[in-house]
């Protein structure tokens, strides 16, 4: 564990908590892509199957349980409890365009052709693009509430901080996982445009609004 990894994890944790609290307290999931949330649930479940096979640490297990739990709580709030506030019309990204290529890629490029390893690899590939329906939704509506922007910023920062963690681990521990690194770069790059808008607008107290 190093400071970059810990910051990344805390940023990730903050993101999922912000999202659940935002939906719960405003009693609304307007502006949130249910499709991205479904993809994240798939990511967590397929990646954290090792919860039942490998024990790493109490920290590791607790975080995994929280991520899976928060993800399912979000889906329950969006598709059941506050269903009426879910903005279907703007959440029109076709997730099969992300699922099919990531499944195929995981079957082709993995470290070991075992069920757990292929599912882990699939979850890494899928996570790198899982935010696209959400970014697509923001671009369709042309704006995002500031709390949604904070959520996106925390969620995007997490993989960026992991990149620093991987650089550190490469030098300090001679440890690297190429699949995670390349996917992490892709994932972080997808947020760049958003980061720019967040820093230039949201942090200056303005609403995140895309140029017309």
């Amino acid at each position: 564990m190093n400071i970059f990894r810990l910051s990344g994890d805390l940023s990730h944790l903050l993101a999922v908590i912000i999202l659940v609290l935002k939906i719960w307290t405003t009693r609304s999931c307007a502006g949130i892509s249910g499709k991205s949330q479904i993809l994240f649930a798939i990511v967590y479940v397929t990646r954290y199957l090792d919860l039942v096979t490998t024990f790493v640490s109490v920290y590791n297990t607790s975080m995994k349980v929280i991520f899976i739990g928060a993800s399912f709580a979000t889906i329950y709030l969006m598709y059941s409890k506050f269903k009426a506030t879910y903005d279907h019309n703007h959440d029109s990204f076709r997730i099969e365009f992300l699922l099919a290529p990531t499944v195929i890629l995981a079957l082709l490029i993995n470290q070991k052709f075992t069920v757990l390893e292929v599912l882990w690899t699939f979850s890494i590939y899928l996570e790198s693009v899982a935010i696209l329906p959400q970014l697509f939704m923001v671009s369709k509506t042309g704006e995002a509430e500031s709390i949604t922007s904070h959520y996106l910023f925390a969620l995007g920062s997490y993989r960026g901080l992991y990149l620093l963690n991987w650089i550190y681990r490469y030098y300090a521990e001679d440890h690297y996982e190429l699949i995670a690194i390349v996917s992490g770069i892709v994932q972080t790059v997808l947020y760049c445009d958003f980061f720019y808008l967040y820093i230039t607008k949201v942090l200056k107290g303005k609403k995140l609004q895309l140029p017309a």
Partner: peptide
Amino acid sequence: SIFNDSHDEL
């Protein structure tokens, strides 16, 4: 190593 069996990250 690149063929590390346990993925210790989240």
